[in-house]
Write a protein that binds this DNA or RNA. Structure first.
Lengths: 350, 350
DNA sequence: TTGGCAATCTGTAACGTTTCAGTATATTGA
DNA sequence: TCAATATACTGAAACGTTACAGATTGCCAA
């Protein structure tokens, strides 16, 4: 009896996630007392309560959700029930619907784990891994040297990234070929006689920033066009900032006669800035823009458009994670989506 | 020993969700055998396997997630990690972020439960209730007589609806005052001299369809304007359909000189249709439109805009559900968001 | 007959938590 | 001094599942 007790807790204190039993052993109390002390039950002595809570905080105790749920029936889950049809122009909803589609006839649930700009992006990942809250993880905004991917690889939790990394580590991903997008975009603009091109880039630091910039540069030299630098903003900036900077740029002596834009919302601001400067789309300047839902041509029919399908991305990412969980080789779960042709919606000018 | 066994299972077979023990009792087998039979383990006789699976299907056995998770560590959860900043123009993502914000410092997780147009909307709700997968539920696309709300009320699971019901039952909700929106919109158009107004309605059948239509009608008689019927489409129709129908409408002899539109994406189509008919926004016709993110004024500065904040809606809904779970009275968890003033972004015409 | 083996099936323990029904000790009132 | 009571703590059981280590039966070879 005594031996068993000790074994158990030596093991526990070594590696595993701490449980009430661990805390009980450390404090020398019973698990019941610990449980009650943590929830401020009245029949626990003030000092004991403080002591238990201190130790719990120190070793980072977090109650096991399955234990609580099994015992009490409390799930600590809020469900948001969504209709998957008819939703428009949104990275987030498209990805969610794509994932949902794939896991619909599996026993899996989709939880959304948010984090904000001010937080370390690693925080939510750490939480998921430490609490064992998920069998698999999908992340976006992937960087060439991505701490999150590295962390998950080290901890052996299956995941998929939206966008590639560049660390010499192999893991599932889905990516849009932004190099090809930029190349096609530049070629198209060049074919229309545009020679001074500017790029409204993806967020600096993300992997596809590099892909896009390189594709842009490669194609520039291919077609013999020149770049007008426009690095004061990226698609991550606010609509107002992009608009203002664009207007400034277009009022200069040497200004671009063509743009490549990496996001639809940013393109709206781009056009507004161009028009603020008194110039006209289709006459003074042309734009090739990515979009994820079919709305830009309504905005200005002169826009040249390349579609990126985020719903597909969501599906692919879900498939990859499930595949990895199911034992497939991570290296076999990578996919790249190639851009379709540049679409022109321009109608006759009256 | 025997007595206890019988007690237990009489209780179980009466009301509760079936477990392995229930199945074991019904088939006369041990729980281990049942467990293995259900997962096609090789050491179970073929007939027994079929028998168990038949009974399981008949009584709708579904494994308890907490039990599986506790025993095996398998969560059956996929986490989608999202950055909550910078996302634009989307009902879904705004709601999600709003909810996330509120539950961020609670122990709650947010799961997304999708359903498609082809399914009975009650299906996902039934699943959630029957499997006890959530402590609280948020639904949208609320109807005056909403089967989902009624069902959840009957089954005692806390929920909140985005939009009100009209069944004489009390439950938490958050709603935007669409009656007030329609009234303000009509008043504004009337003040600009517009007299023949059309309404691009919300989806027929949803509660706020009625609110909007009534507000529109009330204000029409107040200002003495007349309605040009436009009931062939709603904002639920496709961009193309709205555009085509609008163009048809605008080519008629008696056509509206003002529109009220219930959604931003639909407004894009509306404008396109108007321009297809050779008419000009601001000259031949004015539009007051709702939007949920600040983009429409870039599209056409002549548009008149009322903002609806879905992120706020998400927060309020989450707060309501948590409040109900926490024991607050459902009637005290209702909120109505009043529309701000109609915004005009029109700049000087050159 | 015996031993061995395959084919089926079963009881027990364990995952981590909370609740129930206590036990031990100190404190109080008479 | 004794019983009653309050205070502080504890072990065992249970939630539903699966893994482990048997148990039972029938059959076959020796």
């Amino acid at each position: 009896m005594d031996r068993r007790h000790t074994e158990k807790n030596e093991e526990a204190s070594a590696q595993e996630r701490p449980t009430l039993k661990t805390l009980a052993f450390m404090t020398g109390l019973g698990v019941t007392t610990v449980s009650r002390a943590l929830k401020d039950a009245p029949e626990i002595g003030a000092e004991t309560r403080r002591r238990v809570q201190l130790v719990a905080k120190q070793i980072g105790y977090r109650p096991n959700r399955a234990g609580v749920r099994l015992r009490t029936g409390k799930t600590n889950v809020i469900s948001l029930v969504l209709n998957t049809d008819r939703e428009i122009m949104s990275f987030v909803s498209d990805i969610i619907y794509g994932v949902s589609e794939v896991i619909a006839d599996t026993p899996y649930h989709l939880i959304v784990t948010p984090y904000s700009r001010s937080q370390d992006p690693l925080d939510p990942i750490r939480y998921l891994v430490e609490t064992g809250s998920a069998d698999g993880v999908i992340i976006s905004r992937t960087q060439p040297n991505d701490a999150r991917a590295r962390y998950m690889l080290e901890h052996g939790i299956p995941f998929a990234t939206h966008g590639r990394t560049d660390m010499g580590l192999v893991h599932p991903y889905h990516d849009f070929d932004n190099h090809a997008f930029a190349v096609e975009a530049v070629r198209r603009l060049a074919s229309m006689g545009r020679r001074k091109l500017a790029l409204l880039t993806p967020p600096v630091g993300l992997t596809y920033y590099g892909h896009t910039v390189n594709g842009f540069a490669d194609a520039l030299s291919e077609v013999g066009a020149s770049e007008i630098p426009f690095s004061t903003v990226s698609i991550d900036h606010s609509i107002e900032q992009i608009r203002t900077r664009t207007a400034q740029l277009m009022r200069r002596d040497i200004r671009p006669d063509g743009f490549v834009s990496s996001a639809a919302a940013a393109t709206l601001a781009l056009v507004a800035g161009i028009e603020d400067a008194g110039l006209k789309l289709g006459r003074d300047v042309d734009i090739v823009s990515k979009q994820s839902s079919d709305l830009l041509h309504l905005f200005r029919p002169e826009l040249l458009i390349v579609n990126e399908n985020f719903r597909l991305a969501g599906s692919e990412l879900a498939r990859s994670v499930l595949g990895w969980i199911g034992g497939a080789a991570p290296g076999s779960l990578q996919s790249l989506s190639v851009p379709g042709e540049v679409l022109a919606y321009q109608r006759s000018l009256d």
